[in-house]
C-alpha cells in the first residue's frame, strides 16, 4: 500500500470529504499545489478552482471550491472552502452561461457595474469550466 495521509474538506455549510488519500492537488493563489505525504507545513489561500483528490486505492475525485484556505500538516491536510461541490454536480452549460454573462457585464461599459464583482464572477465561471474540462479529459482518456 502506498503512503497515505488524512484529508478533510469542509465548507461553511457541510463537511464535504474526510478520509485517507495519496495526493491532493489544489489551485493556490500562486499556482497549483500538489501535496504528497510528508509535505512540510504550509498555509495557503485557494483561488476558485478544482481540487483533485487521489484516494488510497488510486481513484481520483474532483471537487470544486470558490476559494478558501488550505492547511498542510505532515499527517493531515485541511481545506477550508468557502463553498465546495462535487465536481460531478457541476453543470457545464450553467458555467458557460455564467462566463458569458460576466464577460458581457465587463464589456458593457455603460452600465454602472461593480467591476470587482463582475471579475470575480468571471474567475469563478472560468474555474468551474476548468474543473469540468479536467473531468472531461479524464473521462476521454480512461
Amino acid at each position: 500500500m502506498a503512503k497515505s495521509f488524512k484529508c478533510e474538506i469542509v465548507s461553511a455549510e457541510a463537511s464535504i470529504f474526510s478520509g485517507a488519500v495519496e495526493q491532493v492537488i489544489a489551485a493556490g493563489v500562486m499556482g497549483d499545489l500538489g501535496i504528497l505525504p510528508g509535505h512540510t507545513p504550509l498555509l495557503s489561500e485557494l483561488s476558485p478552482g478544482p481540487v483533485r483528490v487521489i484516494h488510497d486505492g488510486g481513484q481520483e475525485y474532483h471537487y470544486y471550491v470558490t476559494g478558501g484556505f488550505i492547511e498542510v500538516q505532515p499527517e493531515v491536510v485541511t481545506i477550508l472552502a468557502d463553498t465546495a461541490v462535487r465536481a460531478d454536480d457541476l453543470d457545464e452549460a450553467a458555467a458557460e452561461e455564467a462566463r458569458q454573462h460576466a464577460l458581457k457585464e465587463l464589456n458593457d461599459s455603460n452600465a454602472d457595474l461593480d467591476y470587482s464583482r463582475a471579475s470575480s464572477e468571471l474567475a469563478e465561471a472560468v474555474a468551474q469550466l476548468r474543473t469540468i474540462q479536467q473531468l472531461r479529459k479524464k473521462a476521454g482518456k480512461g
Binding site: 493556490g28 493563489v29 500562486m30 499545489l33 512540510t40 507545513p41 504550509l42 498555509l43 495557503s44 489561500e45 484556505f69 492547511e71 500538516q73 505532515p74 499527517e75 493531515v76
Partner: peptide
Amino acid sequence: DEEHSRPANWDYLYEPDAKVLLDRL
C-alpha cells in the same frame, strides 16, 4: 491525534505571504 513530538520552533510556509494570509484567515 495531532500530538506528535514536533520540533519546538516550526513554522508554516505561507503563500502568498504571512501577513496577507493571516489577516484574511
